[in-house]
Protein backbone atom coordinates (compact mmCIF):
# COMPACT_ATOMS: atom_id res chain seq x y z
CA UNK A 1 0.00 0.00 0.00
CA UNK A 2 2.60 2.46 1.06
CA UNK A 3 5.03 1.34 -1.65
CA UNK A 4 2.28 1.76 -4.17
CA UNK A 5 1.56 5.32 -3.20
CA UNK A 6 5.30 6.05 -3.12
CA UNK A 7 5.42 4.95 -6.69
CA UNK A 8 2.58 7.24 -7.58
CA UNK A 9 4.55 10.17 -6.22
CA UNK A 10 7.57 9.24 -8.25
CA UNK A 11 5.65 8.94 -11.52
CA UNK A 12 3.67 12.00 -10.52
CA UNK A 13 7.07 13.67 -10.79
CA UNK A 14 6.42 13.99 -14.51
CA UNK A 15 4.25 17.08 -14.12
CA UNK A 16 6.77 19.01 -11.99
CA UNK A 17 9.45 17.82 -14.39
CA UNK A 18 7.72 19.49 -17.33
CA UNK A 19 7.22 22.59 -15.23
CA UNK A 20 10.90 22.72 -14.30
CA UNK A 21 11.95 22.16 -17.90
CA UNK A 22 9.79 24.90 -19.30
CA UNK A 23 11.08 27.13 -16.51
CA UNK A 24 14.65 26.30 -17.54
CA UNK A 25 13.79 27.18 -21.13
CA UNK A 26 12.41 30.57 -20.15
CA UNK A 27 14.88 31.79 -17.51
CA UNK A 28 17.86 32.67 -19.74
CA UNK A 29 15.77 35.38 -21.40
CA UNK A 30 15.07 37.09 -18.10
CA UNK A 31 18.25 36.54 -16.09
CA UNK A 32 21.27 38.79 -15.90
CA UNK A 33 24.19 37.67 -18.06
CA UNK A 34 26.20 36.53 -15.06
CA UNK A 35 23.40 34.34 -13.76
CA UNK A 36 23.07 32.59 -17.11
CA UNK A 37 26.76 31.71 -16.87
CA UNK A 38 26.14 30.39 -13.36
CA UNK A 39 23.22 28.32 -14.64
CA UNK A 40 25.52 26.66 -17.18
CA UNK A 41 27.85 25.68 -14.35
CA UNK A 42 24.90 23.99 -12.63
CA UNK A 43 24.36 21.87 -15.74
CA UNK A 44 28.02 20.89 -15.90
CA UNK A 45 28.13 20.08 -12.19
CA UNK A 46 24.95 18.01 -12.39
CA UNK A 47 26.50 15.92 -15.16
CA UNK A 48 29.59 15.48 -12.98
CA UNK A 49 27.68 14.53 -9.85
CA UNK A 50 25.27 12.26 -11.65
CA UNK A 51 28.01 10.37 -13.49
CA UNK A 52 29.89 10.05 -10.20
CA UNK A 53 26.82 8.52 -8.63
CA UNK A 54 26.89 5.76 -11.26
CA UNK A 55 30.36 4.80 -10.03
CA UNK A 56 29.31 5.14 -6.40
CA UNK A 57 26.50 2.62 -6.98
CA UNK A 58 29.24 0.01 -7.48
CA UNK A 59 30.71 1.33 -4.23
CA UNK A 60 33.85 2.66 -5.87
CA UNK A 61 34.23 6.06 -4.25
CA UNK A 62 37.24 6.76 -6.44
CA UNK A 63 38.89 10.14 -6.21
CA UNK A 64 39.90 10.70 -9.84
CA UNK A 65 36.54 11.78 -11.20
CA UNK A 66 37.44 15.48 -11.24
CA UNK A 67 40.70 14.69 -13.02
CA UNK A 68 38.75 12.79 -15.71
CA UNK A 69 36.65 15.94 -16.04
CA UNK A 70 39.97 17.64 -16.66
CA UNK A 71 41.05 14.97 -19.16
CA UNK A 72 37.88 15.72 -21.11
CA UNK A 73 38.54 19.45 -20.93
CA UNK A 74 42.18 19.20 -22.00
CA UNK A 75 41.50 16.66 -24.77
CA UNK A 76 38.57 18.55 -26.23
CA UNK A 77 40.34 21.89 -25.96
CA UNK A 78 43.58 20.66 -27.50
CA UNK A 79 41.84 18.77 -30.30
CA UNK A 80 39.92 21.89 -31.24
CA UNK A 81 42.84 24.28 -30.87
CA UNK A 82 45.77 22.30 -32.25
CA UNK A 83 44.13 19.98 -34.77
CA UNK A 84 41.17 22.10 -35.78
CA UNK A 85 38.63 19.43 -34.84
CA UNK A 86 35.11 20.92 -34.82
CA UNK A 87 34.04 21.71 -31.26
CA UNK A 88 30.95 19.52 -31.32
CA UNK A 89 33.09 16.56 -32.40
CA UNK A 90 35.86 17.35 -29.94
CA UNK A 91 33.55 17.26 -26.89
CA UNK A 92 32.50 13.59 -27.26
CA UNK A 93 36.08 12.68 -28.22
CA UNK A 94 37.19 14.27 -24.93
CA UNK A 95 34.60 12.14 -23.19
CA UNK A 96 35.89 9.00 -24.88
CA UNK A 97 39.43 9.86 -23.82
CA UNK A 98 38.30 10.38 -20.22
CA UNK A 99 36.51 7.02 -20.29
CA UNK A 100 39.66 5.31 -21.56
CA UNK A 101 41.83 6.99 -18.93
CA UNK A 102 39.34 5.99 -16.24
CA UNK A 103 39.60 2.41 -17.36
CA UNK A 104 43.40 2.58 -17.52
CA UNK A 105 43.59 3.92 -13.96
CA UNK A 106 41.21 1.34 -12.55
CA UNK A 107 42.75 -1.66 -14.29
CA UNK A 108 45.98 -2.00 -12.24
CA UNK A 109 44.06 -1.32 -9.00
CA UNK A 110 41.25 -3.84 -9.43
CA UNK A 111 42.74 -6.26 -6.94
CA UNK A 112 43.38 -3.57 -4.32
CA UNK A 113 40.53 -3.45 -1.83
CA UNK A 114 38.91 -0.75 0.27
CA UNK A 115 41.13 2.14 1.40
CA UNK A 116 44.06 1.07 -0.68
CA UNK A 117 41.86 1.51 -3.71
CA UNK A 118 40.50 4.95 -2.81
CA UNK A 119 43.90 6.30 -1.92
CA UNK A 120 45.60 4.82 -4.96
CA UNK A 121 42.98 6.44 -7.20
CA UNK A 122 43.79 9.76 -5.53
CA UNK A 123 47.48 9.19 -6.18
CA UNK A 124 47.03 8.30 -9.83
CA UNK A 125 44.73 11.29 -10.32
CA UNK A 126 47.49 13.53 -8.95
CA UNK A 127 49.90 11.87 -11.38
CA UNK A 128 47.76 12.98 -14.32
CA UNK A 129 47.21 16.45 -12.91
CA UNK A 130 50.93 16.91 -12.25
CA UNK A 131 51.66 15.82 -15.82
CA UNK A 132 49.69 18.87 -17.01
CA UNK A 133 51.60 21.00 -14.54
CA UNK A 134 55.00 19.60 -15.42
CA UNK A 135 55.00 19.62 -19.22
CA UNK A 136 54.63 23.17 -20.52
CA UNK A 137 54.64 21.67 -23.98
CA UNK A 138 51.93 20.68 -24.90
CA UNK A 139 49.88 21.26 -21.71
CA UNK A 140 50.97 24.80 -20.89
CA UNK A 141 52.16 24.13 -17.33
CA UNK A 142 50.52 26.00 -14.45
CA UNK A 143 49.04 28.67 -16.70
CA UNK A 144 47.31 26.02 -18.78
CA UNK A 145 45.97 26.53 -22.28
CA UNK A 146 44.26 29.69 -23.48
CA UNK A 147 42.56 30.73 -26.72
CA UNK A 148 40.58 27.54 -26.98
CA UNK A 149 38.15 27.88 -29.92
CA UNK A 150 34.54 28.84 -29.25
CA UNK A 151 31.76 26.72 -30.70
CA UNK A 152 30.91 27.55 -34.33
CA UNK A 153 27.88 29.10 -35.99
CA UNK A 154 25.47 26.40 -37.12
CA UNK A 155 22.36 27.16 -39.16
CA UNK A 156 22.59 30.80 -38.30
CA UNK A 157 22.83 30.20 -34.55
CA UNK A 158 26.07 31.36 -33.01
CA UNK A 159 26.83 28.84 -30.29
CA UNK A 160 29.56 31.00 -28.81
CA UNK A 161 26.77 33.32 -27.68
CA UNK A 162 25.49 32.97 -24.17
CA UNK A 163 21.91 31.88 -24.74
CA UNK A 164 22.53 29.34 -27.52
CA UNK A 165 25.29 27.78 -25.42
CA UNK A 166 22.93 27.72 -22.45
CA UNK A 167 20.47 25.65 -24.48
CA UNK A 168 23.26 23.49 -25.85
CA UNK A 169 24.53 22.63 -22.36
CA UNK A 170 20.97 22.17 -21.09
CA UNK A 171 20.35 19.74 -23.95
CA UNK A 172 23.56 17.83 -23.26
CA UNK A 173 22.69 17.62 -19.57
CA UNK A 174 19.21 16.26 -20.31
CA UNK A 175 20.64 13.74 -22.77
CA UNK A 176 23.22 12.58 -20.23
CA UNK A 177 20.51 12.33 -17.55
CA UNK A 178 18.35 10.25 -19.86
CA UNK A 179 21.21 7.90 -20.72
CA UNK A 180 22.25 7.48 -17.10
CA UNK A 181 18.64 6.90 -16.13
CA UNK A 182 18.28 4.19 -18.76
CA UNK A 183 21.53 2.58 -17.65
CA UNK A 184 20.34 2.53 -14.06
CA UNK A 185 17.06 0.88 -15.00
CA UNK A 186 18.78 -1.63 -17.29
CA UNK A 187 20.20 -5.02 -16.48
CA UNK A 188 23.66 -3.50 -16.07
CA UNK A 189 22.28 -1.05 -13.52
CA UNK A 190 20.77 -3.93 -11.59
CA UNK A 191 24.12 -5.69 -11.60
CA UNK A 192 25.78 -2.54 -10.27
CA UNK A 193 23.29 -2.40 -7.44
CA UNK A 194 23.77 -6.09 -6.68
CA UNK A 195 27.53 -5.57 -6.43
CA UNK A 196 27.17 -2.68 -4.01
CA UNK A 197 24.75 -4.61 -1.80
CA UNK A 198 26.62 -7.89 -1.51
CA UNK A 199 29.65 -8.46 -3.73
CA UNK A 200 29.99 -12.13 -2.83
CA UNK A 201 26.37 -12.95 -3.53
CA UNK A 202 26.56 -10.97 -6.77
CA UNK A 203 29.64 -12.89 -7.87
CA UNK A 204 27.96 -16.18 -7.06
CA UNK A 205 25.06 -15.34 -9.39
CA UNK A 206 27.53 -14.98 -12.22
CA UNK A 207 28.11 -11.23 -12.25
CA UNK A 208 31.67 -10.51 -13.32
CA UNK A 209 32.62 -7.92 -10.71
CA UNK A 210 35.90 -6.59 -12.14
CA UNK A 211 34.27 -6.18 -15.53
CA UNK A 212 31.33 -4.27 -14.08
CA UNK A 213 33.59 -2.04 -12.02
CA UNK A 214 35.61 -1.21 -15.11
CA UNK A 215 32.39 -0.58 -16.98
CA UNK A 216 31.09 1.80 -14.30
CA UNK A 217 34.39 3.67 -14.19
CA UNK A 218 34.61 4.11 -17.94
CA UNK A 219 30.96 5.06 -18.46
CA UNK A 220 31.13 7.52 -15.55
CA UNK A 221 34.47 8.78 -16.85
CA UNK A 222 33.01 9.35 -20.31
CA UNK A 223 30.31 11.64 -18.96
CA UNK A 224 32.77 13.46 -16.70
CA UNK A 225 34.86 14.09 -19.81
CA UNK A 226 31.82 15.44 -21.65
CA UNK A 227 31.25 17.84 -18.74
CA UNK A 228 34.87 18.95 -19.10
CA UNK A 229 34.34 19.60 -22.81
CA UNK A 230 31.27 21.71 -22.06
CA UNK A 231 33.31 23.74 -19.57
CA UNK A 232 36.37 24.34 -21.70
CA UNK A 233 34.56 25.65 -24.76
CA UNK A 234 32.70 28.14 -22.63
CA UNK A 235 35.69 29.33 -20.59
CA UNK A 236 38.02 29.34 -23.58
CA UNK A 237 40.85 28.34 -21.25
CA UNK A 238 41.88 25.51 -18.97
CA UNK A 239 44.50 25.08 -16.24
CA UNK A 240 45.43 22.33 -13.76
CA UNK A 241 44.18 24.26 -10.72
CA UNK A 242 40.58 23.74 -11.82
CA UNK A 243 40.92 20.02 -11.16
CA UNK A 244 42.70 19.82 -7.81
CA UNK A 245 41.62 18.08 -4.61
CA UNK A 246 39.47 21.04 -3.56
CA UNK A 247 37.17 20.49 -6.53
CA UNK A 248 37.06 16.79 -5.68
CA UNK A 249 35.97 17.73 -2.16
CA UNK A 250 33.14 19.84 -3.56
CA UNK A 251 32.05 16.92 -5.76
CA UNK A 252 31.95 14.70 -2.67
CA UNK A 253 29.96 17.37 -0.83
CA UNK A 254 27.33 17.61 -3.61
CA UNK A 255 26.94 13.86 -3.82
CA UNK A 256 26.95 13.21 -0.07
CA UNK A 257 24.65 16.07 0.89
CA UNK A 258 22.25 15.24 -1.92
CA UNK A 259 22.29 11.53 -1.25
CA UNK A 260 23.18 8.66 -3.55
CA UNK A 261 20.29 6.26 -3.04
CA UNK A 262 18.18 7.52 -5.90
CA UNK A 263 18.71 9.24 -9.18
CA UNK A 264 17.51 12.61 -7.84
CA UNK A 265 20.01 12.86 -4.98
CA UNK A 266 22.95 14.38 -6.87
CA UNK A 267 20.63 16.82 -8.65
CA UNK A 268 19.28 18.02 -5.31
CA UNK A 269 22.81 18.11 -3.91
CA UNK A 270 24.19 20.30 -6.69
CA UNK A 271 21.13 22.55 -6.73
CA UNK A 272 21.22 23.21 -2.99
CA UNK A 273 24.94 23.28 -2.34
CA UNK A 274 25.96 25.24 -5.41
CA UNK A 275 23.26 27.80 -4.70
CA UNK A 276 24.64 28.20 -1.18
CA UNK A 277 28.10 28.40 -2.70
CA UNK A 278 27.08 31.26 -4.96
CA UNK A 279 25.16 33.05 -2.20
CA UNK A 280 28.08 32.85 0.24
CA UNK A 281 30.53 34.70 -2.00
CA UNK A 282 30.86 37.55 0.58
CA UNK A 283 32.10 34.98 3.11
CA UNK A 284 34.65 33.56 0.71
CA UNK A 285 37.33 32.93 3.36
CA UNK A 286 35.31 30.83 5.75
CA UNK A 287 33.08 29.26 3.11
CA UNK A 288 35.07 25.99 2.85
CA UNK A 289 34.63 25.43 6.59
CA UNK A 290 30.87 25.74 6.28
CA UNK A 291 30.84 23.24 3.42
CA UNK A 292 33.18 20.81 5.15
CA UNK A 293 31.10 20.96 8.32
CA UNK A 294 27.85 20.50 6.43
CA UNK A 295 29.22 17.32 4.85
CA UNK A 296 30.37 15.96 8.21
CA UNK A 297 27.01 16.75 9.82
CA UNK A 298 25.03 15.19 6.96
CA UNK A 299 27.14 12.03 7.17
CA UNK A 300 26.55 11.70 10.90
CA UNK A 301 22.95 12.82 11.29
CA UNK A 302 21.42 12.39 7.84
CA UNK A 303 23.04 9.35 6.23
CA UNK A 304 20.61 9.31 3.27
CA UNK A 305 21.33 12.94 2.42
CA UNK A 306 18.73 15.60 1.62
CA UNK A 307 17.10 13.24 -0.85
CA UNK A 308 16.48 10.73 1.95
CA UNK A 309 14.98 13.51 4.09
CA UNK A 310 12.61 14.54 1.31
CA UNK A 311 11.42 11.01 0.58
CA UNK A 312 10.89 10.49 4.31
CA UNK A 313 8.83 13.67 4.46
CA UNK A 314 6.75 12.52 1.51
CA UNK A 315 6.03 9.16 3.13
CA UNK A 316 5.00 10.88 6.34
CA UNK A 317 2.76 13.28 4.43
CA UNK A 318 1.10 10.34 2.72
CA UNK A 319 0.49 8.56 5.98
CA UNK A 320 -1.26 11.65 7.23
CA UNK A 321 -3.29 11.83 4.02
CA UNK A 322 -4.37 8.26 4.49
CA UNK A 323 -5.27 8.68 8.10
CA UNK A 324 -7.10 11.95 7.67
CA UNK A 325 -10.31 10.62 6.05
CA UNK A 326 -10.71 8.12 8.87
CA UNK A 327 -10.70 10.90 11.43
CA UNK A 328 -13.33 13.02 9.69
Amino acid sequence: MSSHSMKKYKIGGLAPLILVLSGLCLVPFFLRAYLVEVAMMYFIYIILAQSYRLIVTVHDWQLYHIVLYGVGAYTSGMLAKNLGVPVFVAIPLGGAMAGLVGMAITLPLLRTKGWGFYIATYGLAELIRLTWLKFRNPFGGSTGIIDIPWPPVIAGIDFSDRIPYYFFSLGVMLLVMLMLYRIEKSRIGDSFKAISMDPELAASTGINIPRHRLMACSIGGFFAGVAGGLLVHRLGAVDPKLFNITTTLYLLIWVVVGGTNTFWGPIIGVSVMHTLFELSRPLIEIRPMFFGLSMVLVLIFLPGGLEGLISKAITRLQKRDRVAPVET
Binding site: W61, I253, P288, F291, G292, L293, L299
Partner: peptide, 21 residues
Protein backbone atom coordinates in the same frame (compact mmCIF):
# COMPACT_ATOMS: atom_id res chain seq x y z
CA UNK B 1 33.86 3.12 6.58
CA UNK B 2 33.06 5.07 3.43
CA UNK B 3 31.32 7.80 5.41
CA UNK B 4 34.21 8.02 7.85
CA UNK B 5 36.63 8.52 5.02
CA UNK B 6 34.54 11.20 3.33
CA UNK B 7 33.82 12.97 6.61
CA UNK B 8 37.55 13.41 7.23
CA UNK B 9 37.78 14.87 3.74
CA UNK B 10 35.29 17.51 4.90
CA UNK B 11 37.38 17.99 8.00
CA UNK B 12 40.31 19.10 5.85
CA UNK B 13 38.33 22.22 4.96
CA UNK B 14 37.45 22.87 8.59
CA UNK B 15 41.03 22.75 9.88
CA UNK B 16 42.35 24.79 7.01
CA UNK B 17 39.87 27.63 7.57
CA UNK B 18 40.36 27.50 11.33
CA UNK B 19 44.12 27.97 11.05
CA UNK B 20 43.82 30.48 8.22
CA UNK B 21 41.45 32.65 10.22
Amino acid sequence: VVSGFIATAGLMFVFEVLVGE
